[in-house]
Write a protein that binds this DNA or RNA. Sequence first.
DNA 1: ATCATGACTTAGCAATTTTTGT
DNA 2: ACAAAAATTGCTAAGTCATGAT
Length: 773
Amino acid sequence: MVSKKIKNIPEDVPLNQLLSHNYGDRRDSYREDNVVANVLDRVGNGKKNEKLVQKKIGRKREAPQEVKAAPVIKDTPDANFHDNSEKKKRNKRVKKESEQQREEESGLKLEKEVNGNSYASELVSRASAVVEKVKKEGVDIEREKQDSASAQGARRKEKDSWKEVGTSEEEGEPEEEEEEDYRWWGRDNREDEDDTIKWTTLSHNGVLFPPEYVPHNKPILYKGKEIYLSPKAEEVATFFAQKFATEYVKKPQFRKNFWEDFQHHLSSDEKKKLKSLDDIDFSPIYQHLEAQKNAKKALTSAEKKAIREAEQEKVKKYTVAMVDGKEEKVGNFRVEPPGLFLGRGEHPLMGKVKKRIMPEDITINIGEDAPVPECPIPGHQWGQVIHNNKVTWLAGWKDSITGGYKYVWLSAGSRFKGQSDQQKYEKARKLKNHIDDIRKDYTKGLESDSLEERQRSTALYFIDRLALRVGNEKDEDEADTVGCCSLRVEHITLRDPNVVEFDFLGKDSIRYVNTVTVDRPVFHNLKEFIRNKKPQDEIFDKLTVQGLNDHLKTLMPGLSAKVFRTYNASITLDRLLNERRFDSEDLNNKLTFYNQANKEVAILCNHQRTLPVSHEQQMQRLQSKLDEALEWLHELEHALKKAKHGKKDSVEVAQYVKPKANLRNDMTQLEREAEKKRVAELPRERKVLQVKASSLSSKIEKAEQRVEKIRLDMSMKEELKNVALGTSKINYLDPRITVAWCKKNQVPIEKIFSKTLLTKFLWSMESSEDFCF
DNA sequence: ATCATGACTTAGCAATTTTTGT
DNA sequence: ACAAAAATTGCTAAGTCATGAT
């Protein structure tokens, strides 16, 4: 079944587009797992597949059809977005004749070239039809399925019809050029290439603004009295109500900041009435928000789907940009909505009102020749339109809280992001060749005559050994967190003879606690650095981040402090994964092994997560599951003893089962809940089973396995309860290590990389199983 | 030399979607 | 079939680091 579906995805959808959704909305017709399976089929885990990929990717393609043969391209609402050369590019994706024949023979000619735009407009009408239906009569799911089925049929017909037409438009053009067009990672990246110029042509549709505020006319209570606010004030009050159920609203800092900003949004009349935040009760608005949430939840799945589709249609034009003639996905095309600023940790600015961004606040960056995106809010215009091809952002604005810039970027699967990601890992690999010298350098520097050098070397020791961040200076209006260079005396405790205890808040106010035995000179230095200093004084007072990085540049070109984190994370994974080779073991064992290695890295980098609220409850549940499994095992063992003495074929085994709830169709939701609750409190019932004596040993074996599995689950859960594996996977581990390991050990890559990660790391998929970091 | 700015990567948490277990 | 749990994605805050201004 799966393989059939895989074949339904046209082969000529380029690999990266298949993953990055750049093939228009056709993806809606493919299930995601088929997309993944298809990609894997192309990329391959084994040698056989590799050849297949070579054949597919390296093959010469036949000349494309004429534009008129593909009616789908013309006259889309955003047709101006694609210039002629882009149309040509799209039309290039045509199959080789022999392949066409082969497929026709096997009856798989249906899903060939589909033009995204025609399909898109088809979707528009489909979606709007569904939306209409929802409005009028609600949606009948079965009916909807039929609709989409017939739409598919129509598409097939359409495709078949243009197969007949179409002659070559670009005969003689070298084919590799097109392939290279998107497979940037196949190219030799020439060292002399000017990498300050990021693009030559760039066009996009701008950004998507959040919907305008619609007043709900729910009051607040001031000293118990209803007060209806002006829309402007009501909006800000609603921001606060949104945080009603969080801890934030209790924090004095949050309340102080909010109250200050709230007053700026009150009319003079309102200002006179509202004297103190403590006297304001936002619960009518909060209740309104909850009611809205519930109403949304109560929609049928068909309604939800219809809404989703309509939304996707609205958003569609913002999702892609054209960069150097190639379509790329845009990452964060939505402008951040207004609301209350929530920092991490004890942020001095928490509770401030983040203002609504208007077109005038936005700078659009496009190519000189590209059409200026239409400003979507009538009566307004873009703040600025610039043509800066030395940067990769598409649009940006200044954040009203932090004063920093916010940018709209391409997605992680884009060339811009992919190339620099690859470069990051290449730089880290280069560090491998210099690391011995660098370690020698700072080891020697620990005992230098210069205080500055001793501090620098000591700091570098920690950055290398403990993977600490460099730690830039921070402002007064930011949370008080530190990294290596900004460590203060209060953050470490020295224990003779040579143990250092760290305890400080790092990035995102995540606590770093570690006890480390260090080399004697390091310990000696630290003692010296903190002598006669106050707890709030910096340990490395003679050291700056700039100075540290400048020095690193002398040891290796392009080296900076953060490279050590990448290097140490990746080299650790590489080492751990190569400690064991799997042959034909259970896939789960392999995955556990990988996760174990991943975990080591996450701990090294101090990647944490707050433990899920229900963690304790879940552990308890597992514990009782374990108890029951053990009980069952004991009963079986007991029965086995009995069976050995007795001569009967079958023995009695006691089993304790939970009574089942009696749920009838005529019960209301509440009655069902009550019944479930009642049953849950009942003691378990003892049942006696007749078990064949001959089957006892296999039952015991199964029970033992189950006990083992639960025990493993429990210890894994406990171990990983506040470790975040994702961060290192996304940012620190060279994906080629994982790809190579998967190929060596016959592990499907999608067991380790999610769809987004497969997309992001597409450039690494073809690396050889011999790859070594 | 120092500071501020700008561009880009890294980060955890919330919301949403998928999988699992009963 | 349903709820609970797990996995994934979306969001945006919070870092790093080079460069340009003072």
